[in-house]
Write a protein that binds this DNA or RNA. Structure first.
Lengths: 219, 219
DNA sequence: AGCATAATAAATTTTGAAATTACAAGATAA
DNA sequence: TTATCTTGTAATTTCAAAATTTATTATGCT
């Protein structure tokens, strides 16, 4: 909880709320009242309004005219939609990166995977994710973002980020079961190898398999 | 220009500015000053600020912290990016629609094309686009949106709309040359036929050919 | 008791002005 | 002359309070 005595400016408040939202510190559909937040951050209602507005543009917050803001509620249908869309973007981004990426890109991807796999093996050893959750969460993002980073399409990359953040918003909650991570290690490895081999079809396949697990239980 | 004496509410101001932006009534990169717009629409600077914020979320307006808003500047690079991304989304949306769409979808697509081709043939006869430009602009949008409307992915459809609007923002300006429309008629027909025949590969090809013309002159 | 209606409370939105920040032109120093 | 600093102006951003709208509770009627 931020100190009430320290005044934060708009970007800081944005970052703080963004972090809280993607780490599921609000319930799905929970009302975000200007007045409450105003007191927490020590600013005017208008500033809060603007921050929530910005957050609504990246899908983390839902806005309804005349009735304020809520933490985004993710239905199974929406989750399905998010997953399919993410697969589309990551496959395309990876394909383009494999075509345009140079040795520098390969190095960055390799490095990102190295960090990620280091954290994942620690999770494996300890059997629990909790202690390194923020670390792991960032490393996972780094890997996927680096994968598509040479796609040469700012639009695709930005769109992917907004989708990913909404994804993360609820992945954190199901992160407690370990089996998830066991497969993750293998899958990230498979994606990396295919990417470095510039095998587009195979890489697309692995990306699909990796992400499609989130579809289980949804039609 | 809206009457200064008539007060408009936020959604109206949004619509008015949105329309002006997609019909290129502002120069690329032109500064959008709160104070000026405030006087035009007869509201406070804060209301203008909120509207401009909303427009910035759909890419029509660029916002920079502490230095206000500008009409979005579209470089050749960005135009290239927009085109490629639009191709990706429309191809995927059309493919999904062909898989999920029922007879009702076919009927709507057929109707949209009928309206569009009627307007396009008028353009052909008269040799000029100007008189029916708004009509044509809407019909074109209707056709493309209907094409992907059965994709069963709200995310894809929303994203497509924001991309399309940014597209339209500058297509209007190059709409004056007639040759453009001559090919358009054939291309829309080709897309329609392939879609109704549920030939995904062919439809993707036609979508690409139709949209890729905008890439001419850009690397 | 059930339902509609009115009164109250709570929250959102807008306003107008104050405070902050960026921009531009002129002055001073190197 | 070039570069840096100052000063004045214009624009953006924040604030606190008023006005509007929505939600909640209480009241009266069938």
């Amino acid at each position: 909880m931020p100190d009430t005595s320290v005044k934060m400016d708009t970007p800081d408040i944005y970052d703080d709320l963004h972090r809280k939202l993607v780490t599921a510190q609000f319930d799905h559909g929970e009302k975000l009242k200007s007045e409450e937040l105003r007191q927490i951050y020590g600013c005017s209602a208008n500033t809060i309004r603007e921050v929530l507005f910005r957050l609504s543009t990246v899908g983390l917050v839902a806005f309804e005219e005349q009735r304020g803001f809520r933490a985004r509620r993710t239905s199974p249908e929406r989750q399905h939609d998010l997953t399919q869309f993410r697969i589309l973007l990551e496959q395309e981004g990876a394909s383009l990166s494999m075509r345009h990426g140079d040795i520098e890109w390969e190095a960055r991807l390799s490095a990102a995977h190295h960090k990620l796999s280091h954290i994942e093996s620690e999770v494996r050893r300890s059997g629990t994710v909790e202690p390194v959750l923020p670390l792991w969460s960032n490393a996972e993002w780094e890997f996927h973002d680096t994968l598509i980073s040479a796609c040469n399409s700012p639009l695709l990359r930005e769109t992917y980020k907004t989708i990913y953040d909404q994804f993360r918003q609820q992945l954190v909650s199901r992160a407690s079961n370990y089996g998830y991570y066991g497969d993750n290690v293998k899958e990230h490895r498979a994606i990396l190898d295919a990417a470095l081999a510039r095998d587009e079809a195979l890489c697309r396949q692995h990306i699909h398999d990796h992400l499609a697990r989130n579809l289980i239980g949804v039609t």
